[in-house]
């Protein structure tokens, strides 16, 4: 099992190293703004992509490693579907290791709006984590239904006097996870990110002479949060502050973020997120085109 984790981490590092001499771009685009896929929460773009995310965190005395992957496909320019799951390794002192697949999640996404001049984008989505599709005690025996709204706003329309701030962008998401089991609490998932795009700075504001690989980087801080809503959970909010960086290329992106718990209820240890997202709509333009 340790060998397996090392193998996966080597795979992620392989991705990072090989990405350095690469060329540029593309994902959710609004005007001149490219919104990279955030790693802690859903991004506001309907696109053809295949994310792979590795996460290590320790909370509540449990060491958790998780490998998440999925695939999303556009059916029309504004509508897409997705499939995702994850495999988890759970280690707790004085207890046998628990491994298994989480429930399979199917989803549908609709691009609600896209405004190029104001670099604004919004998406509605609905997800269903299907009961009893996991294994090893990781997946649940109930389904979870999640309606979601995700949005993004670039600052490219700031006045010239604030041009240095134009590479900034905000994205956010709010979603309500509703379990089919009436004894399990509903959870409000909410998140936002603040990002500064070096490609945007050099392509649309001022060329600074920043060379590869830094010229493709987007420093970012993500704030993924959860608030337990009912059934005796006391409206507890847990979450993380995730500072990191995402490297955006022509056919995908690579990112790494620390996960800093916001309170003791979340945990006491800093975790790590490493993610790859393939823009397979750019990698394979013909099958990547909308089907209708």
């Amino acid at each position: 099992m340790l060998h397996q984790r090392r193998l996966l981490l080597r795979g992620a590092m392989c991705v990072i190293i090989l990405s350095w001499p690469g060329i540029l771009w593309a994902h959710a685009v609004a005007g001149m703004r490219v919104f990279p896929a955030t790693m802690g929460f859903d991004d506001p773009g309907v696109a053809d992509e295949a994310p792979l995310l590795f996460n290590h965190i320790k909370a509540g005395g449990v060491d958790q490693d998780m490998l998440s992957f999925g695939v999303a496909k556009t059916l029309t320019k504004s509508f897409g579907i997705s499939l995702a799951t994850d495999y988890q390794w759970l280690n707790q002192k004085d207890a046998p290791q628990q491994n298994g697949w989480d429930n399979l999640t199917v989803g549908a996404q609709y691009q609600l709006f896209r405004n190029g001049p104001h670099e604004a984008i919004g998406m509605l989505a609905f997800y269903d984590a299907i009961a009893n599709t996991g294994s090893g005690g990781v997946g649940s025996d109930y389904s979870t239904y999640t309606p979601e709204f995700a949005w993004g706003k670039g600052f490219g329309d700031l006045p010239r006097s604030m041009a240095d701030l134009r590479p900034l962008a905000l994205t956010g998401m709010v979603a309500d996870s509703i379990p089919s089991d009436p004894t399990v609490p509903n959870t409000l998932n909410w998140a936002f990110s603040l990002q500064y795009s070096i490609p945007y700075l050099q392509d649309f504001v001022k060329y600074m002479g920043i060379k590869a690989p830094f010229n493709n980087m987007v420093p970012i801080v993500e704030f993924p949060m959860q608030t337990c809503l009912d059934r005796g959970c006391g409206s507890q909010t847990t979450g993380y502050i995730n500072p990191g960086v995402i490297w955006v290329g022509a056919y995908g992106q690579v990112g790494i973020e620390a996960q800093i718990p916001i309170n003791r209820a979340t945990g006491r240890h800093v975790g790590v997120l490493v993610g790859v997202d393939l823009y397979w709509g750019d990698l394979f333009p013909r099958p990547g085109r909308p089907w209708f």
């Binding site: 193998l7 060329i23 540029l24 593309a26 792979l52 992957f69 392509d203 290329g249 333009p285």
Partner: peptide
Amino acid sequence: IAWLYCTLFFTLFSGGAYAHAFP
């Protein structure tokens, strides 16, 4: 799956460009 992603990612930076064009 892990090595597939690694291979695909290597591929996408070694080949020609068929993607959004940015300066």
